[in-house]
């Protein structure tokens, strides 16, 4: 096996295990809540399965960003892996497992709301765009945690999210009554494709951001 194969094997194992742990946690929370309010667990779970799966998928992206680069990445390097190989394999595993998880929730959404099937050409690019943005946010967490440590990294991430939300709110306010908004409303298909492309570009930018400077980073155990 090459170094990349070994990395892929390990990262897929580790990320899948973490993903299952997040699913288990969500199921556990729903079970406890059902127990507390006396509702039927199966009914509650089935009713809200899209929400729970989406929550688990989104959580996983942030959790992976928060821990993988600071905990498992140094371990893989200390076990004689090339840094870049480990980073690439880590991203491949995170994104494939994340995408798979989001896809399951998407399929559940299509089953639950058949009306979505009629708008697939609009919904799929938008769905991919959202995932790309989430992966980008995951890599922002990874970048900040790797640079500033997990605690400060998380605080800076929250500040970053507030800042982005603030900018978006202002941006929406500006374009809402303008020409751009009318154009978007006139051609939502084009907007969805643009949104998808933006998500993918941001995702790639996030990976580049994390990898920048990683070659010079001092690997230490924490």
């Amino acid at each position: 096996m090459t170094g990349f194969d070994r990395n892929l094997k390990y990262w897929f194992y580790y990320v899948s295990k973490s993903m299952l742990a997040i699913y288990a946690m969500i199921i556990g929370i729903v079970a406890v809540m059902s127990l507390l309010d006396g509702s039927n667990f199966i009914d509650t779970f089935t009713e809200n399965i899209v929400l729970y799966l989406t929550m688990a998928s989104a959580m996983s992206v942030i959790v992976f960003g928060f821990t993988n680069i600071t905990v498992m990445f140094p371990v893989t390097v200390s076990m004689s892996s090339r840094r870049r190989t480990s980073l690439v394999a880590m991203n491949v595993a995170q994104q494939v497992i994340g995408l798979l998880s989001f896809t399951i929730s998407f399929i559940c959404a299509l089953i639950k709301w058949p009306v979505l099937k009629e708008m697939l050409s609009l919904v799929i690019p938008a769905f991919l765009g959202v995932i790309g943005i989430l992966f980008f946010l995951g890599n922002i967490v990874a970048f900040l945690s790797e640079r500033f440590g997990r605690t400060v990294g998380m605080i800076l991430y929250i500040v970053f999210v507030f800042f982005v939300v603030f900018l978006c709110t202002i941006g929406i306010g500006i374009v809402k009554n303008g020409k751009t908004f009318s154009m978007v409303m006139a051609n939502p298909q084009a907007f969805a494709i643009l949104f998808c492309a933006a998500g993918i570009i941001l995702d790639v930018l996030g990976i580049v951001l994390v990898s920048a400077g990683l070659n010079k980073k001092e690997i230490k155990y924490c």
Binding site: T70, V71, V75, T76, S81, R150, Y221
Partner: peptide
């Protein structure tokens, strides 16, 4: 860092990583 960093790994998980990485 207690259970939040590498300390959260079990010995068997750490050894599994070693088994995968060292050819």
């Amino acid at each position: 860092a207690g259970n939040t960093g590498i300390g959260g790994l079990k010995v068997k998980e750490y050894l599994k990583a070693a088994r995968t990485y060292f050819p």
